[in-house]
Design a protein around this nucleic acid. Structure first.
Lengths: 109, 109
DNA sequence: CGGCATCCACCCCGATACTG
DNA sequence: CAGTATCGGGGTGGATGCCG
């Protein structure tokens, strides 16, 4: 443990972490990468009907910069790029799973 | 089970559920109500340094309308209003807890 | 104390078009 | 296929002031 805890700093840490997941699309994207799935750009585009190319690219770049998503490009024609969760991203899986369960409960009612 | 499941509808349900938690402040507020805590308006205001009264009131109203937070007003002078999670809101606790753990992991590193 | 009203800046996000 | 460029509208959120 490299850090001391106080209620205050814990709250600040949570807020900082939440910033990384904010926005209209981030969690939606992560849900589709959930479970170790590896998807191409166009896969995600098809999996998320409402999203535009701009937002998908923009959010993926942000998630990559924050170390949550790993981007692997194959230098070939036509281009091929795969996205998957990093280790840090996979650490989010329990949270994603819990949210999924909550969504299911709401959908049932 | 009152609903049939397909990958598509499951994704739609998740997206719908995420809409309820979107925005700059919703999850932050819920974190402070986490664990069955009952807080007054001014308690939340103090607990979340960056927030304005407008946003706090606005987001609390939205959370109340979505059945996640319960609002109890005591008709007295000066006014006293308490906020707590509803049953649906408490169903979010596992998710909040998982996100908290993730935040802790990041903070340690 | 616990709001609401107003005004306003920003930037998020969408639509469209273009590129390697 | 996998993006970027540009433009523009609207909603989110901040500051301030007023009210029961």
């Amino acid at each position: 443990m490299s850090k001391r805890y106080t209620p205050v700093s814990a709250a600040a840490d949570v807020e900082a972490a939440l910033r990384l997941l904010e926005g209209r699309w981030k969690l939606v994207i992560l849900f589709h990468l959930f479970g170790g799935k590896v998807l191409r750009f166009s896969d995600l585009e098809r999996a998320i009907p409402g999203i535009t190319q701009k937002m998908l690219g923009q959010q993926l770049k942000a998630l990559e910069a924050d170390g949550i998503v790993h981007r692997q490009a194959y230098p070939q024609v036509p281009p091929k790029v795969e996205y998957r969760l990093t280790i840090w991203g996979q650490a989010l899986c329990p949270a994603l799973d819990a949210i999924l369960k909550w969504a299911d409960q709401r959908a049932e009612a």
